[in-house]
Nucleic acid binder design. Structure first.
Lengths: 203, 203
DNA sequence: AACTTTAATCAACGTAGTGTTGATTATTTT
DNA sequence: AAAATAATCAACACTACGTTGATTAAAGTT
């Protein structure tokens, strides 16, 4: 996947990415020009086109990379396993690793998920986060209920995503370990109880 | 708030808005030019500048208008009142009016909340939807709990917003009446139970 | 209906960013 | 040391921008 890259190519690509990141903290993605990125990166404008088609393409590639990284972590999650940890009052390790990865890309994620961010990216990330978490539960969920199943899923997935968003927006004040705990609890003590998949905790 | 407008001014403004809406269904907002909007609206390019600063400004004004309309509806909500209707199995009328207003602006909302939409707008809408719903509850919420209060709020508000998003994304298949029911149930039978603000329903 | 005010049109202008080209220089790999 | 690859630079035509001033059309006003 990652072929060896010419040192020069890798270096200028990094310069360009840093430049774009810096510009994103200053102004909206829409208003950033190739000229600006190149100037900021101290690179000839023509050089930019040796790497990317335009600014939008560059951003897209960066998004894809981050999602790729996060995806690998999320793949490791197993909700059934996670529930055991919730009862033991311990953070579920794979969940911790997810939050650590998020923290690793904090700057980029904060930009892409805040106002001025990219809704398409947020939607993809939400799907990534929740698809795997619930794909094995859907079968066992009851057919008829107070709320249609698809709406229940929307409720649940958005809720979990909202917790993550809140963490990112708040500058990731809490450590990944505590976030893992909170997340598991949210999943465990949330509407899962209501919908009857899981027994209510004693409290 | 709405002063009488010269017929011409109102007419061309409408033409421009229709043109922008049409273009938004075809391509990303970033790539839409003043020239395109003017051409599509069958209006001189210079005329555009008599109404808006640029395309971004035009979109912003349209967003503000829609949010203004929705805000008026949401103002009418009272969560305490709403809970009574949940028990009675009836849709809470002010909630219905909210969903009717959403349906009224369905085209625009679908565009702004889907991929390619505007995250800033989504965030503002989420805040609008949920701020009023929980502002009176926060006081009565317990201090210490399994999940920090701000994370619980993030969970809850995102969850509710997710339900609305799901409805919009799905083409608003269910009628506002049924959505009002679902929404109230989600609020009522959700983690409110868990956090102890409300007694668990008998089921 | 005549008058006045306001909008929209049109052509033209300099400006800025775009995407590409070909020739040249610098760096890395082999 | 030689070959291959990247980055630089200047120049190009092109497109959209935002603004201007003069003109025409349509609305509101008395």
């Amino acid at each position: 996947m990652a072929e060896k890259m010419d040192r020069r190519k890798a270096r200028t690509k990094q310069q360009l990415q840093r430049a774009l990141l810096a510009l994103l903290t200053e102004k909206g993605a829409d208003t950033i020009t190739v000229t600006e990125v190149a100037e900021r990166a101290d690179v000839n404008r023509g050089t930019f086109y040796l790497h990317y088609k335009d600014v939008a393409d560059m951003l897209q590639q960066m998004k894809d990379e981050v999602l790729q990284h996060l995806s690998a972590c999320v793949e490791q999650l197993d909700l059934t396993e996670a529930m055991l940890f919730a009862d033991k009052e311990e953070p579920y390790p794979p969940m911790m690793r997810v939050f650590e990865k998020i923290a690793e890309h904090s700057e980029f994620l904060r930009l892409m998920l805040g106002p001025g961010g990219d809704l398409s990216f947020a939607i993809r990330l939400r799907e990534l986060m929740t698809k795997r978490m619930y794909h094995n539960l859907e079968i066992s969920a009851p057919e008829k209920h107070l709320i249609p199943l698809d709406f229940w899923a929307a409720y649940q997935t958005s809720a979990n995503f909202g917790v993550i968003l809140h963490w990112i927006e708040g500058g990731m004040a809490l450590p990944p370990e505590q976030m893992a705990k909170i997340m598991i609890r949210a999943i465990n003590y949330g509407p899962l109880v209501t919908i009857g998949i899981r027994q209510a905790p004693k409290g």
